[in-house]
Design a protein around this nucleic acid. Sequence first.
RNA 1: GGGGAGGUGGCGGAGCGGUCAAUCGCAGCAGACUGUAAAUCUGCCGCCCUAGCGGCUACGGAGGUUCGAACCCUCCCCUCCCCA
Length: 369
Amino acid sequence: MRTAHGVIDTPAFMPVGTQGAVKAMTHRDLDALGVQIILANTYHLYLRPGADRIARLGGLHSFIGWDKPVLTDSGGYQVFSLAARRTVHEEGATFRSHLDGSEHLLTPESAVDIQARLGSDISMVLDECVEYPATYERARESLERTLRWARRGRDRFLALKQEAPYPFSNPGQAQFGIIQGGTFPDLRRASVEETLSIGFEAFAIGGLAVGESLPEMYGVTESTASRLPVDRPRYLMGVGTPVDLIECAARGIDMFDCVLPTRNARNGQLFTSEGRLNIKNAEFADDPRPPDPSCSCYTCRHFSRAYLRHLFQAGEMTAATLNTLHNLHFYLDTMSRIREAIVFAQLEELRQRFRRIFPAQPADSAFRR
RNA sequence: GGGGAGGUGGCGGAGCGGUCAAUCGCAGCAGACUGUAAAUCUGCCGCCCUAGCGGCUACGGAGGUUCGAACCCUCCCCUCCCCA
């Protein structure tokens, strides 16, 4: 897919850099890992250091020194995760800042304005991520509000685009709509229909991985993704585990983001080709092997489990860095395998088709990529 | 030599007659984490087990007072501080 700051191979995984930094990483680390796009957060950057300040400093890319694509989440997730600190109403969501207790109103319009000031490449519309479990009524009312917010957000976005000259740093900013509807198939279907009719550059599936079962999550992903336009990226927000990436890519998802690889790295859990590995476990105290012998990341090429465990136990910051490097490498490597598998599957499909169209072709040799 | 303070679970440190196997912190052990209020959070952490308002041994040592002692008394051992 193409953005104002470059092309992204899909399916893509976007590391989360809420406050304009992927925790424990420098941008140089991200470059070396092959990261093509990161996520930042409207709510957090609005509270600190402030959207106007970032705009004055030339926009997010300039401010944080990262010239590749950035997607900004709208703060919709904070409506969910900071539920105890906010109230939702028709106008928007009123938050009490976790930093100083001050009150702030985030509306569909202000979420657009803030993201325009930030100058991200992809701006997300403000939505309400409904909790799980939720009653049908609750999910329906929430979805209806999300749809009204989506119209307002889109209107504001298009209005800003009309301004000439464009007053902010990224005139090529795109805006994604978000499908909600909880775990109710008809609500999801209605959400797709309505959100598509509003029209966005692309669409995301939100409100998943909030407590529902995996079959529910995969089911909603499959039925929803299948109704979204195939010529635009389909983004599954906040997902997921390595297995989720594969399961959901197989169901048509093109973009993922998740805090798991980075947060779990800081908490001592590594994703490896053998499964999860808790580097703080005593069993690794004398283990000279790398975390994942089949991994080619910087951490695995240079350091032992014993050393990584020591760094973690000792509270060394480097533990977070090395663990994060590994987990992000694992995630990006998984995505690259997924992309290969898709190409392979498409080639196989084409081959089968051509064998039917041109039956006189010579007999098979072993199929090779 | 004189005066004072104190010895509690791996460490630090509460407790000062019963509800104390003993607050809490650290260390240790294990687990969780899905659009990041997270380098966070949760559980376990004397020994035994059928894991429980269970059994056993415990608050420097030995006696004692008491229905009952980590807490009170006596003696002993050992630390630390001040003055000579």
